[in-house]
Design a protein around this nucleic acid. Structure first.
Lengths: 330, 330
DNA sequence: GATCACATGGCAATCGTTTGCCGTTTGTTG
DNA sequence: CAACAAACGGCAAACGATTGCCATGTGATC
């Protein structure tokens, strides 16, 4: 099973009777050669099955045409959208996407950035776990773009964030329209940047709407966090519960069902993310959808653009998906 | 925001007062240099923050230390496990994983193989969409490994497959023990290799157990396929339904619920994959789990190994997860 | 008809690393 | 103490592409 020797640019040049430089230009700088010559070279290249060697290309040009996407946990469906979007944007631009799983660890994240930094033209970090300083340092050494995190005061590191302000307002408006006059937020880990934004948004929106908002937690942002969170919410007399994310929300739903609490009749539950499964859990979850696919694509596009001196923060809209887990206050 | 110039092996060599070859060997061939020298070089390298340039390394050594994983649809949670496993195995070996989404298309799959083939040391194709000929050709040009597909008669292309024979036997045994004496299989697309294996296994197991097995379909292997599939199964008088995969099974569950058919009291439903969400849909789905994470890791490991002349087919076990969607025959 | 500009293609240096080969040093052995 | 081998480190040639610079040829312009 010998791997056939690869066809190099020299082979093409020889076969076409031109110099390698001409072949190179015919392929990557079409205006630089005569149309006839180019046709001929392209023909020969196609006939020989020539595929440029990316490493060699990277060596001389300095660009690898490869981008990296780092996520805290690949299996978390929340990130599947971002991965898909990034892959789509990269593929559309003829770029390659490499994927890294940081295992929710700031250390692993830093390691990956250092290791991949040399191999790619830019790195997208989704929901970064590192500190602002970590990220600023990384941003100084590599092209970086962030998803759901901003780096205030650090120019040159663009980011894409979900519009939590508008989103949380939608949540509050929805609950208010159902007759609720207070909500309980079941928070996730304190370090979570998006968690902080979600709570800040909820609090502001609640205050604007004249209803009360309380925060409990932190809880594990997973199914396993559900029981503790649900019990605490019930103990606090909650009628409207907003959860840090859908995983927790679904965990809460299960606990409520186990305890015989009717949703949405006795208690309303809202999640964040519109994660895969949010529509087929029982009852189907009302949740704030984030268009993570657009966010992923957008982050890659930010890196494809020439670096902008001023750090951009693209805001992607969010939408409340009203399903069956929210209802009129009892 | 100038990207600082990267430290090269020459810088390290100069700073350490040795030749570049020595630095190179100190890093990648430790036994070839004196321990003292190596220590010194490693120190200097660390102090300077030297990171080897992967492209340059690839140029001279021919190995990129990068592997590709191609999946039909990144957002399909079924593949999340394989992605995670592959990433884990690659990271453990100090390798980089690049990800490709073939969008369920044989053409895109072929394109990606051709484009990435030059950039990686090996490619894992999960649930390949290409024909046997396509894959054999690709396998001749690149190191390839397949997940859930075999290439009979083509040596040199190893694969990892789920143990559907044992798995379907478990399903049938489970149904039989619940008093069922026939089952209806709601099939997915005809081209699906695993679909064919699943049906073949079910049929054989059913025949061995002395119960009847019928196949309906093909249906869309998605939530959207549910209504048509469920209606057909009901029309056929099914009491035990086995679905091509969990997505379809959940679609079927929803349709049954909508039609007021009690699960598992009136009808039992079984899926394949133990996909994310199978445990929190309503009722929780009995399904055959595939350990896709192990499969992904295993596929990468097959590529990490020196090429074996004889194509291997690693079989990873499957397990039936009995939940709430199956019950005694009514 | 001389001059000039531009289009075109070739030469050769370069990117950062690996690795085959060779020279030197050092230690071992008879 | 001579002879030899092993250990170690350096030189320089690859690897396959890009790209700055130069040489040539062509047509346009005065």
């Amino acid at each position: 099973m010998a791997i056939p020797k690869r066809v190099t640019i020299t082979d093409v040049a020889d076969a076409a009777g031109v110099a390698t430089s001409t072949v190179s230009r015919a392929l990557s700088n079409p205006d630089r050669v005569n149309a006839t010559t180019r046709e001929h070279i392209l023909d020969v290249a196609a006939r020989l099955g020539y595929v440029p060697n990316p490493s060699a290309r990277a060596m001389s040009s300095g660009r690898t045409h490869t981008y990296a996407l780092l996520v805290p946990d690949i299996t978390n469906p929340y990130f599947a959208g971002a991965i898909k979007g990034a892959e789509r944007a990269a593929a559309a631009a003829g770029k390659t996407l490499v994927l890294g799983d940081t295992q929710e660890s700031a250390a692993k994240e830093g390691e990956l950035i250092a290791r991949l930094g040399a191999a790619v033209d830019g790195i997208v970090v989704a929901a970064p776990r590192g500190t602002d300083d970590d990220l600023a340092a990384a941003g100084a050494a590599h092209r970086l773009a962030l998803i759901n995190r901003t780096l205030p005061g650090v120019p040159g590191v663009p980011s894409v964030v979900a519009d939590y302000d508008a989103g949380t307002r939608q949540i509050v408006d929805h609950l208010v329209s159902l007759g609720h006059d207070e909500l309980v937020f079941l928070g996730g880990p304190h370090e979570s940047w998006s968690g902080a934004r979600r709570w800040a948004g909820l609090r502001a929106a609640a205050s604007a709407a004249g209803i009360r908002a309380r925060r409990l937690g932190p809880y594990l942002p997973t199914l396993q966090g559900g029981p503790a969170a649900a019990d605490a919410a019930l103990a606090a007399g909650a009628r409207a519960i907003v959860c840090h994310n859908d995983m927790l929300a679904i965990g809460v739903l299960r606990r409520l069902a186990a305890r015989g609490v009717a949703v949405p009749d006795a208690v309303s539950v809202v999640g964040f993310d519109d994660m895969f499964g949010a529509d087929f859990c029982q009852p189907a979850l009302t949740t704030l959808a984030e268009r993570t696919e657009d966010a992923g694509a957008c982050a890659i596009e930010l890196l494809l653009r020439p670096p902008s001196a001023t750090g951009t923060a693209v805001v992607v809209p969010t939408q409340l998906r009203v399903r069956d887990s929210t209802g009129a206050r009892s």
